[in-house]
Amino acid sequence: MELQYIQPGRPMQDGYIDWFNRTFRENIVDVYLFEDITQVQILAEEWMQDYI
């Protein structure tokens, strides 16, 4: 068995990571206007509880 790493800058080689990045961006980053990092952390934790 040998580890195979994805090429740098090629997230589409790992479908799960590509899905995570897309859905997180669509559901959190593109929807809210954040006032501070704490708000981002709270929303990200809530999102992860629902989707992961």
Score class of each variant (00 low, 15 high):
10 R>M: 08
8 P>S: 15
40 V>C: 15
37 I>F: 12
20 F>E: 00
43 L>C: 06
41 Q>G: 12
19 W>G: 11
3 L>E: 13
49 Q>E: 09
13 Q>V: 02
42 I>P: 07
22 R>W: 00
36 D>C: 13
3 L>H: 06
36 D>K: 04
30 D>I: 04
28 I>M: 14
14 D>L: 11
16 Y>G: 02
29 V>S: 13
1 M>G: 07
11 P>C: 09
20 F>N: 00
40 V>W: 04
25 R>N: 12
13 Q>E: 14
46 E>R: 09
37 I>A: 07
8 P>A: 12
35 E>K: 14
21 N>M: 13
14 D>G: 12
40 V>Y: 13
21 N>R: 01
8 P>M: 04
41 Q>H: 12
46 E>M: 11
48 M>T: 08
8 P>L: 01
43 L>H: 08
5 Y>P: 03
14 D>A: 11
48 M>R: 07
21 N>V: 00
14 D>S: 07
4 Q>E: 10
2 E>G: 12
6 I>H: 01
29 V>L: 14
12 M>V: 11
50 D>K: 10
10 R>P: 01
9 G>H: 03
43 L>G: 03
31 V>W: 05
18 D>A: 05
18 D>E: 07
17 I>A: 12
35 E>I: 04
28 I>W: 06
10 R>D: 03
25 R>Y: 01
44 A>K: 11
35 E>L: 11
49 Q>N: 10
39 Q>W: 02
22 R>I: 00
5 Y>A: 11
27 N>L: 02
37 I>P: 05
29 V>P: 05
28 I>H: 04
51 Y>V: 14
8 P>K: 14
28 I>K: 04
30 D>K: 15
9 G>V: 08
24 F>T: 02
19 W>P: 14
6 I>F: 00
45 E>Q: 12
31 V>L: 06
25 R>E: 03
28 I>P: 06
10 R>N: 10
23 T>A: 00
16 Y>C: 14
44 A>E: 13
32 Y>P: 09
39 Q>H: 05
34 F>V: 08
9 G>I: 04
31 V>K: 09
30 D>G: 07
50 D>C: 10
13 Q>H: 07
18 D>K: 01
42 I>C: 13
45 E>F: 04
24 F>C: 10
31 V>C: 12
14 D>Q: 02
18 D>S: 06
19 W>V: 12
43 L>K: 15
2 E>Q: 06
42 I>G: 08
44 A>M: 13
7 Q>G: 05
36 D>P: 11
6 I>R: 01
32 Y>M: 08
4 Q>A: 03
8 P>T: 09
47 W>H: 07
34 F>L: 02
39 Q>R: 05
50 D>G: 11
10 R>V: 03
16 Y>D: 05
45 E>P: 07
